[in-house]
Design a protein around this nucleic acid. Structure first.
Lengths: 224, 224
DNA sequence: TAAATAGTGATAGTAATACTATTATATTTG
DNA sequence: CAAATATAATAGTATTACTATCACTATTTA
């Protein structure tokens, strides 16, 4: 699997960046260190100036890669969803039985991320935490509709629709495949957040993932 | 109902404000106009300076009511959840049958808000939109745990737990009442958002509320 | 090899934000 | 009427989110 993955690059809408951060060492350091910093201090406190200082570079150099920190967040989260989509397709491709297939998909999508050595400068575990804590800020803006038209959310939408298709394949009479798919993806992030900060509002505790809950939820609704 | 409500005041944690905005005309105008402005321009572009200009007052006067705009958002969203909780308790109190009760609760919690004339300076319809677009920003911060300890989210948590209790009353063997309750509250906001901006990711369209979807979702999981 | 070009780093500057502090004035209350 | 309180106006600060300019270096290319 690692050998296969080594040549894979997560394809991200070119409009999101000014210069592809994968194309240089500085670019990779920007991505690598921004993940660490956003995790530590949160997206609000994170600035390009601080990032510049941390990577021994300059604010102005970072602006040559990303127009602003919002675009950097779009880049990071798009990368995460692209990476997750890859995991999902890879793991479910060969499964013929619709139920087993959906089970596997939900497992991948709701579990706490484990490290992937294929992308050396990106820490997927921390990136998952960023997605949990910051993803909704990337679309809860007055510019959503414009940015959506520009294609900044294509990967996420494709992932939701993949799950929706799997739901439909299992139960073609089910009326809400899109809503269920989006609820599971979004809801999974939310349950992870609750586990860490509002434990009384969830039934997932400690090392427990919301996987079982979402499997029960989905398969109760679907006739299989 | 209106006569009953007229004497009701939504009780909000006093730590959220410096001076109770309900205690003066200026305070009410701050709340009233901030709802209109946050709706129009979004929370990021909204500032106390702009609000001061709009209400013919001054930035510094607003700071005597709220420490910062984050606290104002906490106030507005707490008010909304308190108001919704009131609606929920009022409407379900007299229902004995657990299934009918939960049905009614989910109806109230997932439907698009309609105007309530009982609170003249607060537009509940716009406030619901603010909650859809901005609520998660109030807790997705590095200060959540401190603010949670201070009790800034009590009303929301109480509402989730009320729904959770109704779920348990209907099916005491169900393993995930808290997760299901939080998924429905959060998920409802999300489905409303998707309806407006990512229609391909939901099955609720136009004037359609996510109510039916969530009813199907909940009652499929529960044995009744 | 010389010249052009691209990438990076450093510095400076701007408008806006999110406040704080002070003072003046208007209004209410004892 | 005096005292206290609420509000308004002004000014000032540190930080943010940029933009612009310039210098240096490495690499490419003519």
């Amino acid at each position: 699997m690692e050998q296969l993955l080594q040549s894979v690059k997560i394809g991200i809408n070119q409009k999101i960046y000014v210069k592809d951060p994968e194309s240089s060492e500085l670019g990779k350091r920007i991505v690598e260190q921004s993940i660490l910093m956003i995790n530590e201090m949160g997206f609000e406190s994170f600035t390009f100036k601080k990032l510049g200082a941390k990577i021994g570079s300059n604010e102005s150099s970072i602006y040559r890669y990303f127009e602003n920190k919002h675009k950097l967040l779009l880049y990071l989260t798009s990368w995460y969803w692209g990476w997750l989509e890859y995991q999902l397709v890879f793991a479910t491709n060969s499964i013929a039985d619709p139920k087993t297939k959906l089970e596997k998909a939900l497992d991948i999508v709701t579990k706490t991320t484990v490290e992937d050595s294929a992308f050396s400068h990106i820490n997927e575990v921390l990136l998952h935490k960023i997605v949990i804590n910051e993803y909704s800020k990337s679309y809860l803006t007055k510019e959503v509709d414009i940015e959506n038209k520009e294609g900044y959310f294509v990967i996420y939408k494709r992932l939701v629709l993949r799950i929706s298709k799997m739901i439909q394949e299992l139960d073609s009479n089910y009326k809400y495949p899109n809503s269920l798919a989006s609820t599971i993806l979004e809801g999974s992030l939310h349950q992870h957040f609750l586990k860490d900060h509002f434990s009384s509002l969830t039934d997932c505790h400690e090392d427990d993932d919301p996987t079982k809950y979402f499997l029960q939820l989905a398969f109760s609704s679907l006739k299989s």
